[in-house]
């Protein structure tokens, strides 16, 4: 009902190759998140799937049918944009109904679907308003509603939360997760925020510079990153990377997550001075300048009192230490 296959898709803008051969399989009902740093080609890939951009080569297959030559409106997709992109001259109701009207859906059916979507997203009081009369969060819900009423095979979200403030972002994230559970539709979601990726995804696709670095479930990426890039991108605060030679290791780089380090005032593997301490209540982030390992971050659960300038010893958990080769790949 909503599967997607991307086969060796490449996209170049003039001489610049933005997508360098993407292969991906999405099964029906999956929630897939594309994550990667800004400018890595996530939006471009999403636009190729939507048909808003032609790929230079490769195939996009939705539900078994090659849609490479199908216009966006006929692909059975719906898209939610970062800037909401509501039609400023139409009311909320007409914003949601326009796509169906263009497709020649009977008015009664349009009304029925708008009714369902607007109650799902608590938009009923605003149906007669124009986008200019709504708050940012309401506008984004209208944009989501506009996607829902189309009953698409595939939902595409392009950074839908990045224009919202922090509190609203968490709420809307929750709403999208519930929406996915209710509709059981296939959703593809683009973000540069690894927290959004971890919290929403069934499957995360990590992109970097137009290439897929790794595909996997959130825990799979956290526990067994394939390379240095994924290890550094997933998890917050970021994984510590230490030059292997300084530690007398054969690996090029040693990686250890801040939460997999323990500290002690008396003894430990790496001696260092406290540079700064961040007290977040539930946990404490310590920045240590170590003799052997350089500047590292340590995450301690709960409250830990450490003054800047104090000497502490950090010890990595050997079972949770990653070793990377010269090519950045994990060494087994």
């Amino acid at each position: 009902m909503g599967s997607l296959n991307i086969e060796n898709v490449k996209k170049a803008f003039g001489p610049v190759e933005v997508l360098k051969g993407i292969n991906l399989e999405v099964t029906d009902g999956e929630f897939v998140v594309f994550v990667g740093p800004s400018g890595c080609g996530k939006s471009t890939l999403l636009r190729v799937i939507a048909g808003l951009e032609d790929s230079t080569s490769g195939r996009v297959v939705i539900d078994g049918a090659d849609v490479s030559a199908t216009p966006p409106a006929k692909r059975g997709i719906a898209m939610v944009f970062q800037t909401y992109a509501l039609y400023p001259h139409l009311t909320v109701k007409n914003n949601m109904g326009l796509g169906l009207k263009q497709a020649g859906t009977p008015a009664a059916e349009i009304d029925r679907r708008i009714g369902i979507a607007s109650s799902m997203l608590s938009l009923e009081p605003y149906l007669a308003r124009r986008p200019a009369e709504l708050s940012g969060g309401q506008r984004q819900r209208v944009a989501i509603g506009r996607a829902v009423v189309r009953e698409p095979k595939l939902f595409l979200f392009d950074e839908p939360l990045s224009n919202l403030d922090a509190a609203l972002r968490v709420n809307t994230r929750l709403e999208i997760a519930q929406l996915h559970r209710r509709l059981k539709a296939t959703m593809i979601y683009v973000t540069h925020d690894q927290v959004e990726a971890m919290t929403l995804a069934d499957k995360i696709v990590v992109l970097n510079a137009g290439k897929i670095e790794q595909i996997g479930g959130p825990m799979e990426l956290y526990n067994s990153p394939a390379n240095e890039f994924v290890a550094g991108f997933i998890g917050s605060p970021k994984m510590n990377f230490v030059d292997g030679a300084r530690l007398g290791e054969t690996a090029k780089t040693i990686g250890v997550r801040p939460e997999h380090l323990t500290v002690d005032a008396k003894s430990g593997a790496w001696m260092g001075t406290v540079v700064h301490a961040e007290h977040l209540g539930a946990d404490t982030n310590l920045y240590l300048d170590c003799e052997k390992a350089g500047l590292i971050t340590v995450r301690i659960f709960g409250v830990y009192n450490a003054e800047p300038g104090a000497t502490l010893y950090a010890t990595p958990d050997p079972a949770r230490t990653y070793r990377f080769g010269a090519d950045g790949k994990v060494l087994k």
Partner: peptide
């Protein structure tokens, strides 16, 4: 003029 707006129109079949 926002690209997103034009693209939203294209997806809606305008």
């Amino acid at each position: 003029v926002s690209d997103d707006l034009k693209n939203a129109g294209r997806i809606d079949g305008l």
